[in-house]
Design a protein around this nucleic acid. Sequence first.
DNA 1: TATTATGCCTAGAAACTCTAAGTAAATACA
DNA 2: TGTATTTACTTAGAGTTTCTAGGCATAATA
Lengths: 113, 113
Amino acid sequence: MVPRSDLLKGSSNSLLLCLLEQQPMYGYQIVKELAARSQGYFKFKEGTLYPALHRLEKSGLITGKWQMLPNGRRRRYYYITAKGHAKLALERTQWQDFLKALKLILQPGASNP
Amino acid sequence: MVPRSDLLKGSSNSLLLCLLEQQPMYGYQIVKELAARSQGYFKFKEGTLYPALHRLEKSGLITGKWQMLPNGRRRRYYYITAKGHAKLALERTQWQDFLKALKLILQPGASNP
DNA sequence: TATTATGCCTAGAAACTCTAAGTAAATACA
DNA sequence: TGTATTTACTTAGAGTTTCTAGGCATAATA
């Protein structure tokens, strides 16, 4: 298997929103979760993830809250907002439209009027 | 339907190779074909398409040949090369791996060991 | 004759990812 | 106890790809 995370370009936002819709997470956790769940396929680099989270927060799609652990360590948990939910719903349909369009290209004449 | 061609980022190469595998085409035709077949979804801008074709040609995945029409107009037809075929085969499996990984993220616990 | 369609090309801005580094503290291990 | 690893976040800069926006030239059409 050859991981090609560059296929993610443009849809990493959706992926992050999707994850955070399932449960709030902090950056480091997201990196680990994505790798674990995708069986090593997705390896978000920190230089990719954190700026992405910051962009999403600045856009109001997620909000981050610092949390201090008993051991003194700090984490920034991100929560999806109402605006984020709406955006995700939109992006889901956009993804489906995209895949539909792709299919039309890849299978010419399948059901073209 | 909201077209989001930015979802294409990183996979426009595959899309072009796919098209040219079906039949050789020239740039202007590709723009029209993509729009027609995808029912208006894909609207490759010329500023995107031509540099992409040049990149593919420089990489040896396609070759372009000028053709003069009887009316004096010229077209540059692009043909997929053997190297291009191989690359496309690879990218197809990469796409499937990508979609598989995506599914694992979007449907957590579906079949995780 | 003027407009539209055909057909190609490119420069520069914008967006996103990666590399690569830094900062800091807790934990594991020898 | 000292060192390495893990946890956890941040950012600067380079590279890639797309879009905007324009240019050039000829043929068909109104």
